[in-house]
Design a protein around this nucleic acid. Structure first.
Lengths: 201, 201
DNA sequence: GCGTAACACGAACGTTCGTACTAATGTGCG
DNA sequence: CGCACATTAGTACGAACGTTCGTGTTACGC
């Protein structure tokens, strides 16, 4: 009973790493089993289907993102400190190759499944909506704290901040440009600054 | 001699459309042949290998992008008019589902191949470098024309503008958010405005 | 209009894919 | 220790993959 869940977690961690490189569709049960030195059928028994494996893998990645990016930011004080921590954690997440040697799995899967209806896509959309909501909420709190201008549109600013993260991910992964993080940091800071309240922090 | 090239063009156009939905890796010779009502082997004869098909498909997409986005912009006057046209064409390209029912193939392939060395990745990187250079050059010209502040960093601004396009593509495709283009337009305008020279256009 | 080269086809190859069954392990409780 | 069950391995399947080959069938230059 307990052994099973343990190995399943082991499988999912490896699945996250592998899928970040070859994509959720390219993630094959055979190659995953090979990496873990176990049989294909033995691994498959933990999941009812490939789609189930894909969904669980994606959920594991979302968990990791929550643990490493969102939750630590929520421990910071409301307003700009929290907002800044959120995005600096996010940039660190893009760079960290511990769990995701192939880049952010959610971003990769978003492109891969934007045209493929199904459970994976639904999960991606739900996760994205949740994240966007969290960012917008953090912005709203920063407005309430008097850090950002009251006329700031939280959803628009969320959109633009997200774009900077996407650009950083792209340049980091495809172009291997180490300056991408620096550029992203500058861009974030300037964008926030443009919405700063006059007497703000 | 001529017949062959004609059908090959037909194949590549269909390949671009299909690959935009399922990715360059998901693009299978069998399904592509099925769409064109021709045999798998007959289609394969036009390309020495699958990688060759992938490379040619990507090149065709790059051609289309040049024709529909970059070239028309180069006909505009140097400076902000050209820069604005470039990005408004780009946003229209993201939206247009004529040739690319599954979104921009280059953006999809960038995520798919950011970890896969080979001819496809090399072509992607080269195309991206070329595009970035063209944008940075357009920005430099806008500075020379006195439209943008001289202290503007062309590469940094290129990075940030590109991020807005990425965010638009993401929201448009994954979330199906129709407001994405509007948001992107606002963001682009405000970003350009922030770098506008005091006596600028 | 004929001959030849270019083109398309169908069949088959070896592999790998996801999945289904069955048999042999291994684990943990009484 | 031994029983019951959860967990792994083994094997087999049909389908799809990229690729090769041999053979018809068109199109085009002379």
């Amino acid at each position: 009973m307990r052994k099973g869940e343990h190995t399943r977690t082991l499988i999912l961690n490896e699945a996250v790493a592998l899928a970040s490189q070859v994509g959720l569709e390219g993630l094959s049960i055979g190659s995953l089993a090979g990496r873990l030195a176990m049989s294909k059928s033995g691994l498959f028994a933990h999941f009812g289907s490939k789609e189930d494996l894909q969904v669980r893998t994606l959920r594991r990645a979302q968990e990791l993102f929550l643990e490493q990016v969102v939750s630590p930011a929520l421990k910071e004080a409301q307003g700009l400190p929290r907002l800044r921590t959120l995005f600096s954690n996010w940039l660190a997440w893009l760079e960290s190759n511990d769990d995701l040697p192939g880049g952010c799995l959610m971003l990769a899967a978003s492109v891969e499944y934007d045209d493929r209806p199904g459970a994976v896509r639904d999960l991606l959309v739900a996760g994205q909506r949740e994240l966007r909501g969290a960012i917008a909420k953090a912005i709203r709190l920063a407005i309430d704290e008097g850090h950002l201008e009251p006329r700031t549109d939280p959803w628009q600013l969320t959109f633009e901040l997200f774009g900077i993260v996407l650009a950083a991910h792209h340049d980091l992964r495809l172009l291997g440009d180490a300056r991408a993080l620096e550029r992203a940091g500058d861009a974030l800071e300037r964008l926030i600054d443009a919405h700063r309240a006059v007497a703000g922090n």
